[in-house]
Design a protein around this nucleic acid. Structure first.
Length: 225
DNA sequence: GCGACAG
DNA sequence: ATCTTGTCGC
């Protein structure tokens, strides 16, 4: 048997060829945030929020629950989280102009991190914002908000390590799809609100955690969808 | 072969 | 990601 992962690697490489990187025409006003959490008998909760930069608040949020069918394997996270995130995103009435995703974009062994794969499936601009590195060479930026250093893969800049606030670990930013690194960095910086994690993603994470807690008490998902 | 390894 | 309380520092 050739190995299932080898087939998926081929799939990732083919999908990666479809990734388009281009500057955004302007700074978006509606920025989305997508995150996933997990609950006991093998289920995933995917949440998406739409953050209005001008109002400085979330104007819509949706979520979905899906049975987890793929294990967590570094380099293959999208096969585990794209399904539930697509389902949650589909429920939005108002679509964000760009979506921040909890994970890598093109800063990936085969150029197809979660943000890239999801962007391709949704056909919208996406940006990968990860809390830890997966691949690439880089130096650490000084401990000052806004400071950043390029991340290289084979001599090519694929993303940046960004210091979002003083005294905390930096985050790893890379374009997912339909946006370039420069625009991605501008969007991320514009969506910071004093915390390490950009506001849209922070809110999506809080929602995901809140839903997980509500689920525990109801000893499952006996009610609602 | 060894170590690293998003969420 | 998840299992988990208090605690040290800005």
């Amino acid at each position: 048997m050739p190995g299932k992962l080898d087939d998926l690697k081929t799939l990732q490489k083919n999908l990666a060829r479809q990734i388009k990187l281009a500057p955004l025409s302007h700074l978006p006003r509606l920025i989305g945030g997508a995150d996933v959490s997990y609950i006991e008998p093998g289920y995933a909760i995917g949440a998406v929020v739409v953050y209005d930069l001008e109002k400085g608040k979330v104007i819509e949020e949706t979520y979905a629950v899906e049975k987890v069918t793929f294990p967590y394997i570094p380099g293959f996270l999208s096969f585990r989280e794209v399904p539930v995130l697509k389902k949650a995103f589909a429920k939005l009435k108002i679509k964000p102009e760009v979506l921040l995703v909890d994970g890598q974009g093109i800063l990936h062994p085969r150029g197809l991190g979660l943000a890239s794969h999801l962007g391709l499936e949704l056909n919208i601009p996406t940006i990968g914002v990860a809390k830890k590195p997966l691949i690439g060479e880089f130096e650490l930026p000084e401990d000052k908000p806004g400071a950043f250093c390029p991340i290289f893969i084979n001599g090519q800049v694929k993303g940046v390590v960004l210091r979002t606030r003083k005294g905390v670990k930096p985050v790893f930013v890379s374009p997912g799809h339909l946006i370039d690194l420069e625009s991605a960095l501008k969007v991320v910086k514009a969506s910071l609100s004093g915390y390490r994690i950009p506001e849209p993603l922070r809110k999506a994470h809080l929602l995901t955690q809140r839903l997980r807690g509500e689920c525990r008490n109801n000893s499952g998902w006996g009610d609602r969808q």
